[in-house]
Design a protein around this nucleic acid. Sequence first.
DNA 1: CTTTCCTATACAACTATACATATCTTATCA
DNA 2: TGATAAGATATGTATAGTTGTATAGGAAAG
Lengths: 239, 239
Amino acid sequence: MRDSSDKTPIWKAIANALRSDLAEGRYAPGDKLPTEAALADRFGVNRHTVRHGISVLVEEGLVRTRRGAGAFVAATPTDYPIGNRVRFHENLIAAGRRPEKRMLALDERTATIGEAQALQIEAGDPVCAYHGLSLADGQPIAVFESLFPLARLGGITAALKETSSVTQALSVVGIDDYTRASTRLTAVRATATHALLLHVAEGDPLLRSSSLNHSQGGLPVEYGRTWFAGDRVTLTLEA
Amino acid sequence: MRDSSDKTPIWKAIANALRSDLAEGRYAPGDKLPTEAALADRFGVNRHTVRHGISVLVEEGLVRTRRGAGAFVAATPTDYPIGNRVRFHENLIAAGRRPEKRMLALDERTATIGEAQALQIEAGDPVCAYHGLSLADGQPIAVFESLFPLARLGGITAALKETSSVTQALSVVGIDDYTRASTRLTAVRATATHALLLHVAEGDPLLRSSSLNHSQGGLPVEYGRTWFAGDRVTLTLEA
DNA sequence: CTTTCCTATACAACTATACATATCTTATCA
DNA sequence: TGATAAGATATGTATAGTTGTATAGGAAAG
């Protein structure tokens, strides 16, 4: 009887080696791993074998890859508390991450039937549509679309053009405070557009939030829909 | 025509044929043998019969195989003298082989109890850990980890980042000469990580050397552990 | 009947190479 | 200063070839 050595496949050994590197903190979240070619050279194996090993870590959510850019240590999923006051930037800053908001579109149009119902206005009434992208540490986190009823919030479009902060823009048009009236959550598959913006694959799961914010007077001032990248955000519910 | 009286098995005949090819220098060390399919075709036998013959040469250490790549003529084991002055590169160059050193990791951490004892420092004191791979003619020979006490050798990390030569880096921080104070040798089985780096099978025997180098002043300046691929190196003791 | 030798087939694991596609970097020009 | 183009990098995909392993079976020898 020869010693039948219980053998670990090379790809698994590579996955283990990289995983322990991550566990030891050799690479910080967001850091770029060595390129596949460099790792293949280091271990003296073919690039495909390295790719197999890395794919394990991607599968586990420890690593994210971007074609043409590299493989990166996955950022810790952002805990995102949902309460009656949701402020995107504050949450991210509290989590020690660098938030960024990028405006994609800002225009005035008429409300659809569903939107009008949510905002308690008439279908066809003018609204301000604010479309944007939220990032943390340069990584896209969510796509959002906010609708504001122009009848109640004249001048919000111009205000948003300046600040890009919803809270601040609402303040300009006289809404000093607002609270979340309702939040609905569902999981959807990423459309091509959302996938492109969020740097995920088409069909990847997204967390969609539909929320309604009321003014102190109890009237709807904002109807927002947000698509979160499912593997980068964890929503937490407060009591 | 001794078809009826031929009592040597085909696989043994193939082994002999290949062995004499090697003895005649038909293949140089490092050369690739014909593929199993080609040999099977040449001898007019099944691939498994050829594999059996090749496996004999692998047992004898004349041939090394790499899955997916082929069978290669093994390089003769490197004689590696162990004395009070051990310089890796010089030994390999003297043996007519092309040495190469590859840095795997370089970081500063705190010493474990055993490491501290060897280096005559306190447990938890900062050390510089230099992890690397040594190759000869592109073939991995040994994995090593060198520890340097930062209290006595401030700046060694930066120096190693530049030179990758231990002797040179020690010179930068004021250690112009050092000698081996002790060397301990044991045989261990290859872990998955070591097997991966050394291109051996998991569980294969490795030669592990723990050595301590002192400065001229008699203080420990380096505590090194090295894992040699057992079939690729022979350690020799000097008087 | 059992063991050894050899054949046959199929699949898994790894290598080698080429090319496509996305990203990053740098030079260049207006 | 900023925009653009070009080149270098890096990951994604496809194809083919090679060794490793498992299984099954036939033929000859002890």
